[in-house]
Design a protein around this nucleic acid. Structure first.
Length: 294
DNA sequence: AATTGGGTCAACCGCCCGGGA
DNA sequence: GTCCCGGGCGGTTGACCCAAT
């Protein structure tokens, strides 16, 4: 987009208005936008360009402000601790860039998304880890053993290319919603049928979500129980050394699950939300766990 | 010096949601 | 219930940069 003329030749404009400038922002435009917002505040983006004297569409102005001009935006390289945090949060949240960015002060969703796509996903791949699932890439190819030996076994066998769950799926998905952040996400939990207790893949314990919650009445559980837990859980990821232990925990959980299942006793039985339709309309599972998105 | 190819990241696109009329 | 608008999101594009050839 650094050459507006060529860009506009290959893309349809985001607004139909003729005479809207596109492409890289000039320092003069930045100054106009920043001065106006400092004077009048954010909001009403669609009419802002005209009021600010800019020949830009509102969305472009908003993007420029949010990702670049805002005083709180931190520039410069992603620090190692920030990178570690991104990894943790992505493992938990997936491509929920705005949500991840919200937990990393000064960083924007766009910046994190770019950093993920250009650095972290490749880094994980080089380590034999699927950047989408954070699980070993060679699950279906046991013969390529080095990577599997150096990485923990998966917590579940969900096919990343499929919306369905494998029969031996070990994780149940619980939708968690934090209304304060317009936030929805999932956790993997293991349910002990004997006690009714549960724990997530990080080892967090919870009490007895009755199985109707898991099997289609997730809303009650979501609203009554899981919000605070999940919020605390996110905070714990940031503040605690969870990540350092999680691979071992995962391995222990899976081994434990398999052994107990095979022994048919004291089963940490795999429970799957049998119908994601309970949360949505039959779209793919990612969409269902994030109702605000398509 | 010229070319090539990969990395980077600002900017755009299409879609969706929530709120108000 | 429907429509419109403002706002927000994730995915993608493509110009620029730079090292390698």
């Amino acid at each position: 987009m650094r050459n507006p003329s060529s860009a506009s030749a290959t893309k349809t404009p985001c607004c139909s208005k003729v005479g809207i400038k596109r492409g890289p922002w000039t320092p003069e435009e930045d100054e106009l936008l920043a001065n106006y917002i400092n004077r009048a505040g954010e909001g009403r983006w669609r009419t802002l360009p005209k009021r600010a004297g800019l020949l830009r569409c509102g969305k472009s102005c908003r993007l420029r402000w949010m990702n670049y001009l805002r005083p709180s935006v931190k520039r410069g390289r992603i620090a190692p601790d920030e990178e570690d945090l991104i990894l943790r949060l992505h493992r938990l949240l997936g491509n929920r860039w705005s949500l991840i960015a919200g937990r990393i002060p000064g960083r924007t969703d766009n910046e994190i998304k770019n950093y993920w796509n250009t650095h972290l996903s490749k880094k994980l791949i080089s380590q034999g880890i699927d950047p989408r699932t954070h699980k070993p890439l060679n699950l279906t190819n046991p013969s390529s053993s080095e990577l599997s030996q150096s990485n923990p076994p998966p917590t579940s066998n969900r096919n990343p290319n499929s919306d369905s769950f494998e029969p031996e799926e070990t994780a149940a998905m619980i939708t968690s919603k934090n209304p304060q952040e317009k936030f929805t996400t999932t956790k993997e939990v293991l349910v002990d049928k004997a006690s009714g207790n549960w724990r997530d893949s990080e080892g967090f314990m919870g009490e007895q979500p009755n199985s109707s919650h898991l099997h289609g009445n997730g809303g009650d559980y979501m609203e009554n129980c899981n919000e605070d837990i999940f919020s605390s859980f996110l905070d714990s990821l940031i503040n605690d050394n969870v990540f350092a232990n999680q691979h071992q925990q995962q391995a222990n959980i899976v081994v434990s699950t398999q052994q107990q299942t095979f022994n048919h006793e004291n089963i940490w039985e795999a429970e799957v939300v049998s119908s994601m339709a309970a949360f949505g309309n039959g779209q793919n599972s990612l969409n269902n766990i994030h109702p605000s998105r398509s």
